[in-house]
Design a protein around this nucleic acid. Sequence first.
DNA 1: TAAAATCCATGCGATCTACGTATGGCAGCG
DNA 2: CGCTGCCATACGTAGATCGCATGGATTTTA
Lengths: 299, 299
Amino acid sequence: MVELHQLEAFEAVVAHRSFTRAAVALHLTQPAVTRQIAALEKELRAPLFDRLGRTVQMTTAGETLHRYAESIVRLAREARHAVADIEAGAAGRVAVGASSTLATYVLPPLLRRFREAYPRVEITVHTGVSAQVLEMVRVNEADIGLVTGDVPDRALTATALADYETVVVVPPSHPLAARSSISASELAGSPLIMMEAGTNLRTYVDGLLSAAGVEEQVTMELDNVEAIKRMIEAELGLSMLPEVSVSAEVASGRLVALKLTGVPHARRRIRLVHRRDKYLPTALQAFMRLLQTAAKNTG
Amino acid sequence: MVELHQLEAFEAVVAHRSFTRAAVALHLTQPAVTRQIAALEKELRAPLFDRLGRTVQMTTAGETLHRYAESIVRLAREARHAVADIEAGAAGRVAVGASSTLATYVLPPLLRRFREAYPRVEITVHTGVSAQVLEMVRVNEADIGLVTGDVPDRALTATALADYETVVVVPPSHPLAARSSISASELAGSPLIMMEAGTNLRTYVDGLLSAAGVEEQVTMELDNVEAIKRMIEAELGLSMLPEVSVSAEVASGRLVALKLTGVPHARRRIRLVHRRDKYLPTALQAFMRLLQTAAKNTG
DNA sequence: TAAAATCCATGCGATCTACGTATGGCAGCG
DNA sequence: CGCTGCCATACGTAGATCGCATGGATTTTA
């Protein structure tokens, strides 16, 4: 079997045109180099050097091998560096699975900060509802996932990041706009613009309202938070949305958010999930730390 | 140290997505493969596979290594084949040093036959006088040399191929043209067209004539056999040339060659020379055999 | 849900390999 | 003709690799 250390010895002999000098360069003794070359020559069934008195010169076979050995040794060196880069976090890839709300309103600034710290790390984001995200992580399509709700899978590790703060969103012209908080029961009779059935958000809101004994008055159903916000701005109704999804409009005065009082929000806990048996490269670890500190600082 | 057999094991695991199946493909046991990968991971300080329950998947570092390992393993395979081709004579390079007479009149048909047998072998021919050719061989610029005269160097091996047959060349219109042979002494008084001083041929001819007690009547001195022949055709004189250099013109009737009688031709022996300590690849050996059989057949 | 099957990791002993030291042989040089 | 420089070889030791046996964990199956 031809081995890399033999090719390195061969290249050293070529470079130094001497077994002895090659041995010095390789921190070996001359007999060791002689045997490496002899092993190569035996394995390839071809002499690689003519031992011409005091000098050595490549044979035709040696020149041929040299052309390949050069590339092989160089590639091996590059491979080491490339892997070291990965390990140092200087390169790599992070695949994140997240709900579209998080992907749209929370991840962008965080990813921007991450990119500044790790500019050569590729980032991919796949969106989906929590169950889909969990599946992505389970089959290793995503390195980590951001999900709401429980994580029943024993193979996955979950750490709580923060809670979705759900707020009631109204247009600035709305009578409620002057208030800062509201209870679920006060929403009875209001025209509600809702996410379409089957989403985590809809299930949660339905639960809130029915617990408060409120009969829903759904005037509109959309599959898209952005669209819902535009509807509210057009004064077609009000809605209950994650605070993160409206903070920009609230700051600019285009929408008003009211705190919901008397509501347990543990059920809307955001969790960071990854496979328990998966190795976490440096870049991935750094990204996870970034998520955790960001969660702590915002609530 | 990263080794080729480890990379092959790594590639096998990647290809089969399983240590066990890789082991079968490599004719090894599974623990052996496990240890190869473990050694790589320790050496590179990076896990290469996530052991996800029943399946294994590459980590980011693994994918990075894979990109390099693929090329490295492929190049190593190609190198083996390339060297084997050289060794089988299917490829390679043959560098010949020869006098210009041999290079011009003898080598072409032989090289043509050689190329038919070994089409992928590169052939280079360097011309020079015998001393130059010997030097080419000595410093390994030429694999073999074709020289006339003695080979004093103990580091070189010489085998006799044939003798230059030196003939007297006259135009068809010349009075001597009707004869088939001539002695050196009969050339007294004839206008001679000679090679320039310092060449082997000139030295030889000078020796011949002075041994026969003939005073030379040199009408012209040229450094080029072709030019001499044109001069003879133009009826400007006659000359003594190697038979091989005029056989084409003799066959077509443009020149007439007369045998020289009473002349020892041992001093114009053509010898095949190569370094004693040089390895002779298959293609080179074949070419040398070709030269020897050609010499035997032509006398 | 318990048993069976599958797969990777690890401990152990034997074998093989690769190294360094010492030494020999050969060519080139004074 | 001895000296020097360089590659090849012999030998003993240290380390590496292999197969076998086995353990631990997960997935599949009954």
